[in-house]
Design a protein around this nucleic acid. Structure first.
Lengths: 229, 229
DNA sequence: TGACGTCGAGAGCAGTGCTCTCATCGGTGC
DNA sequence: GCACCGATGAGAGCACTGCTCTCGACGTCA
């Protein structure tokens, strides 16, 4: 805790390990070898265990960092758009998510791909993981409050309505009406579906201009959310 | 090739290996060990290499089987719905995909999750992989031909329209107008996004009644496609 | 019957995650 | 200033992995 030289050295080494691990992650995917990381650090493998109790713990650290890094980028991009330009904010959010994902494909796989078996994401991951969601909700809330987003009158099945109302009572969702939250759920799945498809190569032979394609998808989603300007 | 006893024995052993591998896959995920499979078969590990040149080749075989198994199930379910009931056919298709995915989560992860690094899906996988898509297109084509699906008048950005027209020229897509294909792309991403979210646990704390939730999503998608009855 | 080809066993190589023990060396309390 | 303690890294070692190679056995076909 204290900012002793010891603690500083430790923090630095920890950061170095994560740095190297991230490089390996980018180079050869999530099968990164702790021993190889140790070699790159110029240290014997057992030394790394002074900093991370297991390979899983290292991966977890990378995951937390990943969520945070993505959320940071998304928030910065969204903040750059004029507050009153809801569509611009939404496009900024969506494009930032895609850009980050393309630039960090393997990390994206770690965050949103097949979960590693026998591995449960610890509590620490959920806070940064929800930040982009919160941000999207903020856009919707602004729109509703300023009356530029029309509240959809969808008739929701009982259980869905119940779920969506419960979610709506949570802190970050206040001010967004249930029917809109329901639509946001659909859109969110669509957003990640689209990114995953592109990243995992499920659109080859189908799409050639990915930029245009993704922009179009974002606009389709925006229209469904009532975010038109 | 010939149906000699030799060839039969070989085919049987091959099938046994895949069977055991599938069990391991279900039990402990894609990190299945070839040696462990060999042990379960009561055979030394090198013997398995007589049947599969590498672990990757085994996984590939499982993947092909997976696509086929899913497609079979989906086709059977869809075929059970009355031909004129487009919505029923769509719901059958979607629910079958989800059911299969829930029943074979790890296989789903193999097929649609993070791709294994350094592993490229061979040609053999693409045919069975597209069967559900073809089926969805058949539903849309029927609807358009019978004039119960209204062709959307969406204005598509140039590159998107070009892509979608090119796709529309492919065999399985004939008879489905470009704007509808574009919508189908969106829906397909949404469908897999929704299934992945459920399977990978991204909806915990959000959704409690998954059946109702998924049914609702399918109907939202149907409406967007103009499949209303 | 003989030859060939398939098959499984076994040993072995290089690599992995992780544990344990042992020396070293730096910071802290007296 | 000194002695101690705890953090650190090295090294050996265990059990495991994918994969290769060699060798003997055995069935099949000419």
């Amino acid at each position: 805790m204290a900012d002793t030289p010891r603690a500083r050295a430790r923090a630095e080494t920890t950061e170095q390990i994560k740095q190297i691990a991230r490089r390996h992650l980018a180079a050869e995917g999530p099968n990164l070898s702790l021993r190889a990381v140790a070699r790159d650090l110029g240290v014997v493998s057992s030394a790394v265990y002074r900093y991370f109790a297991s390979r899983d713990e290292l991966l977890t650290a990378l995951i937390v960092d990943g969520y945070t890094s993505m959320a940071d980028r998304v928030e910065v991009a969204e903040a750059a758009a004029p507050r009153r330009d809801l569509l611009g904010r939404w496009l900024a959010l969506g494009n930032a998510m895609r850009d980050w994902s393309l630039a960090n494909r393997h990390e994206y796989g770690l965050l949103y791909g097949t979960p590693v078996p026998g591995y449960a994401a610890p509590q620490t991951t959920i806070e940064p993981a929800t930040r982009p969601v919160q941000l999207a909700m903020a856009i919707l809330r602004d729109g509703v409050e300023r009356d530029v987003i029309e509240v959809p009158k969808d008739r929701l099945p009982g259980p869905v309505r119940a779920d969506v109302e419960r979610v709506g009572a949570a802190p970050g969702f206040a001010g967004v009406p249930p029917t809109l939250i329901a639509r946001a759920f659909s859109v969110w799945a669509q957003l990640f579906g689209t990114i995953s498809f592109e990243l995992f190569g499920r659109l080859t032979n189908g799409v050639t201009d990915y930029d245009a394609y993704f922009d179009h998808q974002l606009r389709v989603m925006a229209r469904y959310l009532g975010v038109v300007r």
